[in-house]
């Protein structure tokens, strides 16, 4: 993933400045035409829509300036509720998925028949559609007959039974667990690639010096896993904002307010013919992702830099 890491490689990737056939410039044209017309221009239009009250079909609309932004950030309980839910969801998913992924990767780092099988099994949920995963977990969490509560009942642990998605304050955390189940397997693969890139001699030297397993993890694995860690954290953060299908399938359309997150809120505004205001929320959505990704990257550099 770290293309062009070293100077010599970078130089080689810049193709020498000799003449190339001019027809080469035609090859990217179909992609560029589609990309600019249907992707770049609509992205810019979102910013334009965001300052209006356009409803999607009438010919005229008013330009409101920043009023929509003010409405979203200060006067719209639905939006602030979705934002709060999304932040809770993100924190649990990022922490849970990163640590579970790293733990399982450390345990599966060697290539044996068992570890290869387990990696394939753990990866399996990733290939399913979010709608399928939503339905599967709707049943796992079913308060009366679901997988968890009926297991607890069989073990005589009725006290631990929970309404799960029906419990208003907790629902979003249960959804986060579903999301972790869905994607942790991919994080395992990324972490294993990172772990296998660490030279084995480092561990041998540490063992010779009598370092404990934990000490080896702290001093070798943890700092050297930094590149994989930042990929996982960045990916998981963005993914926890992009979650959409799974919310609709586990909760219905529109979702219950305890499971409403930003992507579903934007969709609901859009479905309510509030195109301008939906675009405003989209702009805020992009801004949140940008800020949070930036902060996480800084934070990771801080904690991992200080320990090596």
């Amino acid at each position: 993933m770290t293309a062009a890491a070293t100077p010599s490689r970078r130089r080689r990737l810049f193709r020498s400045n000799r003449r190339v056939p001019p027809t080469l410039f035609l090859f990217p044209v179909p992609a560029l035409v589609l990309y600019v017309t249907f992707f770049v221009i609509p992205t810019l239009q979102t910013f334009q829509y965001s300052t209006t009250n356009w409803n999607g079909y009438s010919a005229d609309y008013d330009v409101l300036g920043l009023a929509n932004f003010q409405r979203a950030l200060t006067g719209d309980l639905l939006f602030t509720n979705a934002l709060t839910n999304n932040l809770k969801f993100m924190v649990v998913v990022v922490i849970g998925q990163t640590f579970l992924g790293l733990l399982l990767a450390v345990l599966l780092v060697r290539n044996t028949r068992t570890t290869i099988f387990l990696r394939a099994l753990y990866f399996f949920p990733t290939i399913l559609s979010s709608v399928s995963v939503g339905f599967i977990w709707k049943f796992v969490y079913d308060p009366n007959f679901g997988v968890i509560n009926s297991t607890l009942g069989a073990l005589g642990l009725d006290g631990l039974k929970s309404p799960f998605l029906g419990a208003e304050g907790q629902a979003i955390y249960w959804l986060a667990i579903t999301q972790i189940w869905f994607h942790a397997g991919m994080m395992v693969v990324i972490f294993i690639a990172g772990l296998q890139a660490i030279p084995a001699e480092l561990y041998e030297a540490a063992r010779v010096d009598g370092a404990s397993k934990w000490r080896q993890f702290r001093s070798i694995t943890w700092p050297l896993i930094a590149p994989a860690m930042s990929i996982v954290v960045a990916y998981t953060t963005i993914q926890s904002f992009k979650a959409f299908d799974i919310v609709l399938s586990i909760s219905g359309n529109p979702p219950s307010s305890s499971l409403d997150i930003l992507s579903t809120r934007i969709y609901s505004s859009f479905a309510n013919a509030e195109f301008g205001y939906a675009a405003t929320q989209s702009v805020l959505f992009i801004a949140f992702i940008a800020v949070i990704t930036f902060v996480f990257r800084r934070f990771l550099r801080l904690i991992q830099g200080s320990e090596s």
Binding site: F39, P42, K242, F244, S263, I266, F275, S282, I286
Partner: peptide
């Protein structure tokens, strides 16, 4: 660029 950034104009 997330889907939400351009889906409405699209």
């Amino acid at each position: 660029v997330p889907v939400q950034a351009n889906m409405i104009p699209q």
